[in-house]
Amino acid sequence: MLLSVENLRVSYDQIRALQGISFEIDEGEIVCIIGANGAGKSTTLLAISRMVPAEAGTRMTYMDKDLLQYSADKVVSQLAISHVPEGRRLFENLTVMENLRLACFARKDDGVRRDVDRVLSIFPRLAEREHQKAGTLSGGEQQMLAVGRAFVSGRRLMLLDEPSMGLAPLMMKGVFDALREINQEGTTILLVEQNAQLALQFAGRGYVLENGHMVLEGKSADLLADDGVKQAYLGG
């Protein structure tokens, strides 16, 4: 098992966003968490990348290590967990190449150049715009850069927050095809999505999050066939 989360609880200003959820991910899997706006999907990812504090009683184990012992930057640099956050959070004042180089900040191995070249070959659009400021890219290109950054920063486990957000269908297909390719090269993916149809078609397994509780889990095919899921998340 790559990541095991037990009884994860997170509160913002006294309001509990996650009420003790548990789930796990095996190496090489694509797993999705679906749920409505405000269900706690983004918070789950932020807790794993240690950007928000988990409450006492939470256990998170990653490759037999206690995840709670790591600060946010060490999660990336020492555990190779990368996170594409909500809204992508590119550094718009930096160029495409500078964004990629920054994502390699803590890497000391000699594979940096190879990985950056790999990103540019997966996303040729980024290669064309190498020296352009990230703020001038289109939405789809920005998503490519966000994924590319995660790819080079550490990629044993990639956390993706709504990668479909704001993308035209064709662009979306391109991004998801690339993610599939990245997964086949060995990266485990945990994805949260409001677009349940898309997420369940992409992932092998899924969890359903409602008001801070995990209410359902199963193989994607089973969830897609589930009446409750159909009614609540797949438009009947």
């Binding site: 996170h83 550094f91 004042n93 500078e98 920054l102 900040f105 890497r107 920063s153």
Partner: peptide, 21 residues
């Protein structure tokens, strides 16, 4: 690269740890 991290932080210091910085 330290200067690069400084410029990134100047734009969005909240997101910087996600880059391993």
């Amino acid at each position: 690269k330290w200067g690069l991290a400084m410029r990134a932080m100047a734009f969005d210091y909240v997101a910087v740890p996600l880059m391993g910085v």
